[in-house]
Structures are given as structure tokens and as C-alpha cells.
Amino acid sequence: APPGAVPGYREPPCDDPETETVAMAAVKYLNENLLQGYKQILNQIDKVKVWPRRPFGEVYELEIDTLETTCHVLDPTPLENCSVRQLAEHAVEGDCDVHVLKQDGQLTVMHANCHSTPDSAEDVLKICPHCPLLASLNDTRVTHAAEAALAAFNAKNNGSYFKLVEVSRAQLVPLPVSTYVEFAVAATSCAAKDVADPASCQLLAEKQYGFCKATLTEKLGGEEVAVTCTVFPSQVADANPADPAAAVQAAPSAAPPAAMAVGPIV
């Protein structure tokens, strides 16, 4: 371009079907590449610029707001069936900048950068004065609750020994004094009933993940734990889920692999 020349861009409306298709492709890409936490759902398109790209195609520069759903990223439930995390549960918002190339009708995410922010304590307490707020995942009460809950689950489990993958969310409840945790787990090669050395248990080649919700209640002279885990069907190995050049098709997803067609086990 000659010096001083600024290449032009166009600004379609944020709610234009074309813009929405690109934003949905970006959210799909985000969810396929998230390594932890919860699946994100599109909430609002903030800005859009469409730049011409040489020799062919266009680049969509989008700013989008997302909201956390209740589906963990390891949960194979389609995003359409996931609920948005409600304000009373202490919602979390994502602010994302994305660049999407449209060429020959195909959408490819070239860049995506998101920052997540929980709703303010003030806003949560305004709509629900007694609701527990999100707690730090490093809090010792949180890590203890997750470890105790997983131990309780493994003790009652006749199948594989499950290891903790991540604590994804936690709340400290004042009355009764308790800790609510949600965490992801993965099956290992060991049987839960006869684990001598948990450190030697390896994750299965065909990864099998689960997602648990637990409450650890402090009682006089001890504690009580209630835990429910959903174990997802084994997942076939993904070629390269973190490949930034991976193409995101605007068309609906293909049918899930056969290994994922089975329902979860609770």
C-alpha cells in the first residue's frame, strides 16, 4: 500500500446474520480449544470490523462477550443443551477478541484471546443476599473438600480409580458451614478397590473423564461429604485440539464419534 494509505474496512451490524455466523464459529472454536473450566456461550457481539484480505477473502475482527455455562469443557454435552450459569450462582463473563478468516465460504479462527471475570460480589448479593460467592480454588478448604469428595467417590466405586484433573469452581457456604466444589476427574489404569500407590496409577490411553459436584459439611466432631459424579464415555484421541490453525466450519457439527454416543454414567 502507498505510504499513508489506510486500507478500508466495513462495519456490518453486530446482529447481522453474517456477523452472528462468524461469532458462533468463534465460540465453537473457543470451546473446542478450552483446556479447563466451563464451556462458553455467546452473550453479545460488541464490535465488528471486516477487513479485505489479499489475495482473497475477508478477516472479521470481533469483540464478543460470552457467559459461562454449567457444562465442563470435558463434558461431551452439545453446547446447545448446556445451561447458562445464573447470576445467583455467581456468573462468570468472558471478553474475547477474535480474528476469523472467511475464504471460499470457510471460516478459520486465526486468533482468539479471552479474559474471564466473575460478576462482582455486590451484584450477586444485590439479587441474592444470602447466596455464597465464588471462592479461591487455592483455598485449603476447597482443595480439602475436593480431595475428600474424590476419596469418597473412589471408595464406593467398583470400576477404575479416578484422579483429580482440576477443581473448576467452589463456594464457601456460611450456614450450614460447608464447602461446595465442582471438579473434573479422569479414570486411571488402577482399580478403585485395590489401589496401593495412587501415584503409580496412569491415565487411560483412551481418556475417560468425569465431572463431580460435592458438598463437604463441617459437623461437630467431624465432617460429612456428599458427592455425585457423572462419568463420561471414553473419548477417542483428538489429533491436535490446540492447533491454532484448525478450521472451524460454520456448518453444524458432524455426529459424535461412536464412543461418545453412549450416555453418561452417574
Binding site: I45, D46, L67, L87
Partner: peptide
């Protein structure tokens, strides 16, 4: 005051193209 039509301005209500609609709720 300049006439909006004479200046090439639209006579109808202004459409704000962005940001788009909120699908769930704002936090």
C-alpha cells in the same frame, strides 16, 4: 439549522449497529 434531508442525513430513527443484542443477561 441545516436541513437533515438536504445534508443527506436519514429521516428515520437511527439504527445503532453495535453493540448487538444481549442474549442472556449483562454482568
Amino acid at each position: 439549522k441545516p436541513n437533515a434531508a438536504a445534508a443527506g442525513g436519514a429521516a428515520g430513527p437511527m439504527v445503532r449497529p453495535c453493540p448487538g443484542r444481549v442474549r442472556h443477561f449483562k454482568i
